[in-house]
């Protein structure tokens, strides 16, 4: 019975996981030995978009391409590259879309102007609306 179940499970697993036939890239599911480097890699991976999945980061996805990108990130970090350099390298290939971390550019400055504007409004509210008379 157990054997049969195993067979069924594998048979079903076959066509489904036939996304691709290769095992995951070496560093897709393997951490770097140096914990400091691994932490750097992890922090970077959490802010990179998985392009074949919807709205997940490559750190949260089982998609093969996310695995390959994790491998790339870890290998490059291990080689001594800076996380921001790796991000820039990916942005050069896929555009700003791949990075969940918007930089202040000509297309994103309003995102950063907004909190400043809100701070001004808050200051105005506290100065002019309150505290005059009670």
């Amino acid at each position: 019975m157990k054997r049969l179940l195993f067979l069924i499970a594998f048979a079903l697993a076959g066509p489904l996981s036939a996304q691709d036939s290769l095992p995951p890239a070496p560093y897709a599911y393997k951490q770097l030995d140096d914990p400091r480097q691994e932490a750097e890699a992890k922090a970077l991976m959490e802010t990179l978009r998985c392009l074949t999945c919807q709205g997940q980061s490559i750190a949260d996805s089982d998609a093969p391409m996310a695995g390959d990108l994790r491998h790339q990130v870890r290998v490059r970090i291990a080689r001594g590259e800076k996380p921001e350099a790796i991000r820039a390298w990916l942005v050069e290939r896929y555009g700003e879309y791949i990075s969940f971390k918007p930089e202040v550019t000509s297309s994103t400055w309003p995102l950063f102007a907004l909190p400043l504007l809100l701070l001004l409004v808050a200051a105005f509210v506290f100065r002019n609306k309150l505290g005059k008379k009670a």
């Binding site: 978009r49 700003e96 969940f100 297309s107 994103t108």
Partner: peptide, 23 residues
């Protein structure tokens, strides 16, 4: 609200951006 809708706004100008946890 703005962070969530912002990608739509830039998309209208043909630019794809992502706004995520680091923002």
């Amino acid at each position: 609200l703005v962070g969530t809708l912002y990608p739509l706004l830039t998309e209208a100008f043909g630019i794809k951006v992502s706004v995520g946890p680091p923002y």
